[in-house]
Design a protein around this nucleic acid. Sequence first.
DNA 1: CGCTGTTTTCAATTTTTTTTGAAAACAAAA
DNA 2: TTTTGTTTTCAAAAAAAATTGAAAACAGCG
Lengths: 166, 166
Amino acid sequence: MDIQEGKQKFIESWGKMATEWGINRTMAQVHALLLVAPEPITADEVMEQLRISRGNSNMNIRALMDWGLVHKQLRPGSRKEFFYAEKDMWVVFRQILVHRKKKELEPMLRVLDDVACVEARCPESESFCRMVKNIRSLSRKADQTLDFLAKADSNWFSNLFFQMIR
Amino acid sequence: MDIQEGKQKFIESWGKMATEWGINRTMAQVHALLLVAPEPITADEVMEQLRISRGNSNMNIRALMDWGLVHKQLRPGSRKEFFYAEKDMWVVFRQILVHRKKKELEPMLRVLDDVACVEARCPESESFCRMVKNIRSLSRKADQTLDFLAKADSNWFSNLFFQMIR
DNA sequence: CGCTGTTTTCAATTTTTTTTGAAAACAAAA
DNA sequence: TTTTGTTTTCAAAAAAAATTGAAAACAGCG
């Protein structure tokens, strides 16, 4: 397989996988393109290579920077901005977890806390309360696990992994 | 807060969270409704309570059964089908992981294997290969971790958790 | 078999999300 | 200050995803 075909396939699949996980396809494709780029590239190059509009390219690069997955590089003597992706996949993975935890798990936890003050007086509300308590307990654990992961280094995961498979 | 309001909020949030994770909102709302229902309910009741069409109700219940999150109950003497959700949240969590791994992680792994045979001859393909190797290695680990989790019981998670926070 | 209550399907419609592209804003250099 | 190359914004358009609802299929019963 040649390099262009490989890149193509990779960008496509990364995009497809992303949509299945609630991330927009183009953002993931821009990410994939930057991941495999040997050098930082400009928003215009992204636009050309993925055949998307300038606005789209810009917005998605900006979103990726919000997520902490892509960084800007300024070159003295040039007005252009160059972008490059974080390439340590453990860091990428961690950033994504942290970002989504903040935006998605935490709001859910707040709702659960809110909703937990329903009193268990009839079979219906009793069942409801039990369920909310269970979910809260698991979500809190997940929350703390993610906090831990956010601080952990790539080695930690390897250690855990080693421990599991032995 | 009263029970109806609590249920309402919970169903709404569960649905919202789901869309952010690439699961359709209605499917998650049906799931939430079944989770907090004290007794098995029919597709018609789901339809009424969520104000959705019969077809939609049916399709989403079916999808939830595919995911192994909801089960059918047949009552002798009645032609109606009743449905109830798996209520052990650890089991729910595990089922979701297993299902998504199969549908999403595994296809990605196959693409990575495919694409890994690009040869590293120029700086461009060298960078590409390095990236693919890293992602493959992390994805494989994730894959095996999920396999492990799929077999683990709820206690295992608690133990891991305990180990992390100490 | 034909009747009846029920579930399932799927083409058409609606809703939501993503993308575009032209205009505005910006900032470095002349 | 004006020019020029560049980035950013956002309303409108397009694309994708979810939902409807009516019709078909199904299954138990007399």
